[in-house]
Structure formats: structure tokens, C-alpha cells
Write a protein that binds this DNA or RNA. Sequence first.
DNA 1: TGGTGTGAAGTGGTTCACAGCA
DNA 2: TGCTGTGAACCACTTCACACCA
Lengths: 220, 220
Amino acid sequence: MTILSNEAYFANVDNKVDIPKKTIYRLSIYSRCLKRLQQNGMETVSSHALAQAANVKPAQLRKDLGCFGQLGTRGLGYPVELLLETIGDVLGRSTLQPVILVGVGNLGRALLHYDGFKKEGFEVLAAFDTNPEALKGNDLIVPLMHDDEMIPFISKHSVRMAILCVPAKYGQEVANELVAAGVQGILNFSPTIIQVPEHVVVTRVDLAMELESLSYFIDQ
Amino acid sequence: MTILSNEAYFANVDNKVDIPKKTIYRLSIYSRCLKRLQQNGMETVSSHALAQAANVKPAQLRKDLGCFGQLGTRGLGYPVELLLETIGDVLGRSTLQPVILVGVGNLGRALLHYDGFKKEGFEVLAAFDTNPEALKGNDLIVPLMHDDEMIPFISKHSVRMAILCVPAKYGQEVANELVAAGVQGILNFSPTIIQVPEHVVVTRVDLAMELESLSYFIDQ
DNA sequence: TGGTGTGAAGTGGTTCACAGCA
DNA sequence: TGCTGTGAACCACTTCACACCA
């Protein structure tokens, strides 16, 4: 099993070029910055300028972009348009990725209202909870269903990614169901470590932990 | 300025022993696992068992714990109690850390209801928003105030950490205020890169980005 | 025997520094 | 001259492998 626990990592898959895991992560950042530049009518950027916007070193940016061959022109910089396209291709954002969300507590509900997902190419098809009736009153945008319907739903809609927001003690159990149903990527907000088979990728976002390590790094 | 962008890092501060940044991060995980073990009445754990629970290699766990000197006994394992205490000390969780939250949108509201923070030793003292009146109806547990009151509040209560949930376009602006008021650590949920002075630490949690990179790593 | 502690080797990623092209 | 592309040096962390101890 592979945990991309807030840093991390993966062995590369055959048909893809060998792109460092961290580079992939940064590509998303570059993409954001480039969109802003594009809106401002910029047509080219130097590695220096883009790096500054993304908060990395220029050399790092060039190395990252170097994975895709010759993209820039020396003495000039990189064409914004081309860069955006290339990154989009690599991240596979051409089509809208279907996603489901499990566990409609406070956090789950907030994430359902978060519009950033759709903006970045993900569509939350449905949300699942053990007690959907209790939540009916809320103004949810997506269909809310009972857990029992989850597995057939995943198969039917070929869902490959899930956002997991259930309480810690149900994390593993639900993860097992997700994996059994064919989910290959889990974004885990449950404050627990889940064990999954080799081919499944888990990214953990643990809010309390983020605060905890942050507090260590600030001067005392 | 230092960005602990979901991976992380930092140069170490003088008076502390040299603990790798990633180790700090994992200590939080170990702590979680140990608490569970403690509740189950376990008194000792082997590096193998704890490593498995935390999803790391045994050698890694031992290296991590090795930073604090001799903790375990050969042939037996580590005493759960002692380990928890030691980790608690290192992470500085003896006292309740005061924190504020800025930007009470969907995400901000969800985080205010999230009980994991207090459980891990953080207390959200207050929340700030540009339009607190509009939110008055909601059942918030913490005092909700207007942005204008933020800077004096930070000084008055010696707040050193802030959770930033404002829309992207206000991210930098609010961050500047926070820093000016004396905040040293920012947990940034705004989907934007913020620039801060050297001594301030920023951890970014970008939900859409997490999904994006996750989607890259699942098999196609 | 079982399991820690740890030097040494390995790995992945970052940064440098400079050659080379517009 | 300005800025990219990239080998080589560097660095942080991980993993191995084994000495050593209860």
C-alpha cells in the first residue's frame, strides 16, 4: 500500500515518463500561477518570475519543466499558454474526474460546498452517510445517499477517487469498502491511518497534525 | 520566508536538538497510535508493531525515536507511557496553544466545529470575518468578531498561530496583517501562495491540489 | 532469542554553476 | 546580453545490516 502522506511519493508507472513525485505536486502550483498570469495578458514568463510566484527557486522550476523537454526559449522564457497546456496534459485534467465523498459531518459538508474542486476539474457526483435522513434539511448541491448504495454507485459510475471524512473509528472499515468497490485513490481526512492494498493511493490530510507540526516550527 | 508546503521543512532552531522535519511530522502520528495502544492497556510496543500501525518501516521508527536517546529496552520494546510523554514534550504540547481562525466561510465554519484541534492541544480563541453580522445566526462555539478587531486581539492574547480560510484574493492581505500583529505560524487553507518574512512559517493545505496530485498517481 | 541502537550505504530531490542558444 | 537546459555536487532522509543487550 502506498501512503502519500502530505509529502510524498510513489514508484512510477511504466508508461509515464519518470517525473519526481514532488514535481507533480508543484505542477499544480505552477498551473495556478500561470492561470493568473494568463488572465493578466502575459504571454511569456521567465523561470525567475514564475518561480518567485510559486515560491520555489528558479533552478527548481527549470528542472521541473525540464521533464517535458524543450519548452522555453533561451533569453526569453516560457510561453504561458504552452506551459499551461503541457501541465494540464501531464496532470490529466482534460476530462472532469468523478469523485464521491463519504461522511457528511461538519467537514464533509464544508467540502461539498467547496467550489475549488470543480474549478480544478473534479466533480463530486454524490455524498454518502450512514444517516442521510438527518441531513436532508441541509441545502446540499449533490445527491445524498445511504452508505448501502455506495458500492453499486461506485461500480455504476466508474468512480476512481473518494474523499473520506468519516470519524476515525470508521475510517478503515469504509476504506475497505471503497477499495473493494474499485476506488484507487483516497483523500483521507479521517484522523487515522488506513491500510490499503499496494495499488491504492492514499493522501492524508490531518488538520490537527498540521497545526501540531506547525507549532513546533515556530520560534519559541 | 519559509513555506512548509505539505511536505516541509525548516532549518533547525538553535536550542533544539537536530530533529529532521519529517520526523516531527511523524511524531504526531506515533502519538496518535500510542494513545490508542494506551487505551487498550498496552504497556510496551515493539518498533515493529508501532511502525506497522503508523505505516512506516520499523527502522525508520527507531531512527526517529533515536533522536531522544535511549528510550527502549532491547528484546522488549518501548514503554508506551514514556514514549507518549517524550513525544509530547518535544512537540511542546504541555500547554494549550491559543489559535485564531480568519475567514468564516464554509470551510472556516467546518473547522470551527472540528473537535480534533482541542483534542490535540489547540484552542481556537476567536474567529474573524469581514461580515460577522451575516453569520450571527449560526451556532458558533467561539466568539465571532470583525476583522478590525483582529490585530489588537492577537496582541492582547499573544496569539502565535492562525488558521487562514479567506478567499484566495484576500490571502496575502490578511497574512500581512497577521504577521504584522505578531503571528508566527499560519495554517493556510486559501488556495494561494502567500509571501511572508523569514521568521514566519506557513503550512499550506490546498484541497484541490491534493486531489489533483492524487489523481495523477492512480493507475490510468 | 527478540528487539533496540546505529554506522554506513543508498535514494530521491535540490541547488549550483555554467555551457549554449535566441 | 539574458535566460534556458543540464551535468555534477550537494543535502536530507531512508533503509540496511549488524553489533549489542535484556
